[in-house]
Simulated scan of single mutants.
Amino acid sequence: MHIEQLLEIFCTYSKFIKGLSDNTIKRYSENINNFISLSEVNHFDDINEQKVLAFFFKGRVERKWKSTTYRTYYMTLIVFFDWAVANGHLETNYVKGIELPKIPKSLPKNLSKQQTNLILETTLNFPCSHRFIRYRNHAILSTFVFAGIRKDELFKLTLDDVDIENRTLFINGKGEKQRIIPISYRLAEILKRYLKERQKLKKTCPAFFTSFRLNKAYTDAGLRRVVKSIRECSGVYFRPHVLRHTFATLMLEGGCDVYSLSKMMGHNDIKTTTLYLSASAEHLRSVLMKHPLEKNSF
């Protein structure tokens, strides 16, 4: 059977049996198709150790892959080849044993309090054709800032997932892992104001954030347009994920402990959360001021 046909079967298996997200399936398909095209293979019989090594070597040297890109292809192909071996399409997983480059440790990018407030104020005062649009856009960016959720998690939010009365968000996270995030008083008021405008337009779509003209869930394309407009107007460059990083940093600066923050962020490993300790100069400064000799005079 042609390898592209087997790729389709693999993606179907990964989605419906393993329950992987659409984004993961899309990444699998794109990366494996790139391997098929660049390595000029039509069947699994065409694959050998030399072709796999050449693919990674060319990617690193000729295509100037970053370490993260290299690792993404590595993890995708190792899963695909494992599946192929298990189903008798391939004798050996030729990716196993290939060396992985080290990923340079970089601190998460975040915004200052002033920059974050400027973004929210700009969004709330941005000229829009309808009040619903202004309040929806402000609610979306505020949810990133005050709850620290991922973009995909925001699009998955339904009306049932948002409990304003008890001030909680029910999140369907990465890998179908669920968690509950408390809502601050300020965010609760912002979401409540958006819901009033939504009710006036008689939206019945189950998605929490909806389109203005259509009774459908808000889209990634729509969010990109909003972010672009607010960036240009405020003069502050940001992406939704930067707002998530900003939430984490500001929470630490406000005194939140790492364990609680890790739960709110949905991190599998608390080590991921501790990166934000290094990113927050204010947090480190406040900790340093607790040195027992700090208050001694000389």
Rank of each mutant, 00 (worst) to 15 (best):
L261I: 10
S106E: 11
I47D: 07
L187D: 09
T249L: 04
I119R: 12
K228Q: 15
I181W: 03
F212Q: 08
K26E: 06
D160K: 03
N48W: 07
H43P: 08
S106I: 11
H130E: 12
H2Y: 14
N117E: 13
I270L: 06
I190D: 02
G222Y: 09
N42H: 11
L111D: 06
A207T: 06
D82E: 13
P108C: 08
I270N: 05
P292R: 15
Q178I: 02
V162G: 01
F212L: 07
F81V: 04
L191C: 06
I25N: 02
K26W: 00
L53T: 03
T219F: 02
I181M: 03
K15A: 14
H283M: 11
T272M: 05
H245G: 05
T168K: 07
K113W: 15
L275F: 12
N296E: 15
H267Y: 04
N34I: 11
I47P: 08
F132D: 09
Q114S: 12
T12C: 01
F132W: 04
N172P: 00
D220I: 04
F81S: 08
A248K: 13
R244W: 13
L141A: 10
F298A: 12
P182V: 00
D161G: 02
L100P: 00
N110Q: 03
V85L: 05
E40H: 02
D163T: 03
K203F: 00
I103H: 00
S129Q: 15
W65K: 10
Y194M: 04
F126K: 09
N48M: 06
L38M: 03
R131N: 09
E62V: 05
T246R: 15
D161C: 12
K177Y: 05
S29E: 05
C205A: 09
D82L: 10
Y74F: 10
I17C: 03
S211L: 04
R198Y: 04
Y259S: 00
Y276H: 10
Q178G: 02
H2C: 09
G222P: 10
F126E: 13
A217R: 13
N172L: 15
F132I: 06
E62F: 03
Y70M: 02
Y28L: 00
I270W: 08
V52D: 12
T168Q: 04
T116E: 05
T273D: 04
I164K: 01
Y259I: 07
K96I: 14
Y135H: 06
F44P: 01
I171Y: 09
S129V: 08
E99D: 10
